[in-house]
Write a protein that binds this DNA or RNA. Structure first.
Lengths: 126, 126
DNA sequence: GCTTGACTTGGAGCAAACTCCAGGTTGTAT
DNA sequence: ATACAACCTGGAGTTTGCTCCAAGTCAAGC
């Protein structure tokens, strides 16, 4: 798979793909005459990275995780611990967002019932 | 309320509070001899801004919203539309994160059942 | 009246995550 | 063989959201 195809498949720029590779998030990408030729293994790695990035895991954390993977079985405990920690962080972010979502719902409801008075006399923003 | 108290109440730096004000997210903060003296109105605004920021709404979007608020009732439709759009964006972010959360759960389970083989022969990262 | 500490300002600095660019190479179609 | 598009690299530039700093003001205690 060419970089263009991968870029279209995941709806991500070619620059970002190269950038992730540079950062160590996609390792050992095979080349044909210097041109990237992604295989299933790389597609899986990219899919994982994109998913985790969309969840807000930092590039540094992902690089750390993938570096541990490369180091073999001795790092299994560390990897597990890393994922558990990230899962906790993620959980609390989801809670924050859910909370904000409900606040938005409420505000929108207020607009629907045209409860205007409150905002008119200068934002109360509650 | 002094800036220090607000900063402690919301667990946010004084610099960030001043920054938000500079960016137009907290308007018309009263002063005593030039020193900020936050009232309930401002506390509400800060609380809203922090909540929405934690949900990933950009400073620009929030500034836009608060600018609309300041302009009065004629902007109610626009404000509603803005919030609805942000709610949609937020919803899809929450979905992404939920998805990642489940993937993390799966991976952690795999580590617990010490299904080592897969990762040993170089990250599959699925 | 002088020091101390918390506050003020404008502006510079910084980290993360891309995004863009120049200059060069490769494969394909005419 | 030459034009063209798609790829390559290293490195510079951009955006967002803070974070820090220098230089100054103000109120309170000694």
């Amino acid at each position: 798979m060419t970089i263009k195809e991968v870029s279209e498949k995941f709806n991500i720029s070619q620059d970002t793909l190269r950038f992730y590779e540079k950062e160590g998030l996609i390792q050992n990408v095979p080349r044909k005459n210097g041109i990237r030729n992604y295989g299933q293994k790389e597609i899986n790695a990219i899919s994982f990275v994109i998913c985790m990035r969309s969840a807000g895991l930092s590039i540094e954390v992902l690089r750390e995780y993938l570096t541990l993977c490369k180091q073999g079985d001795s790092t299994i405990e560390q990897r597990k611990a890393l994922l558990i920690k990230q899962r906790e962080i993620l959980k609390s972010k989801i809670d924050d967002m859910q909370n904000a979502y409900e606040k938005l719902n409420y505000k929108i409801d207020v607009y629907y019932s045209t409860m205007i008075e409150k905002e008119r006399k200068f934002l109360t923003a509650d």
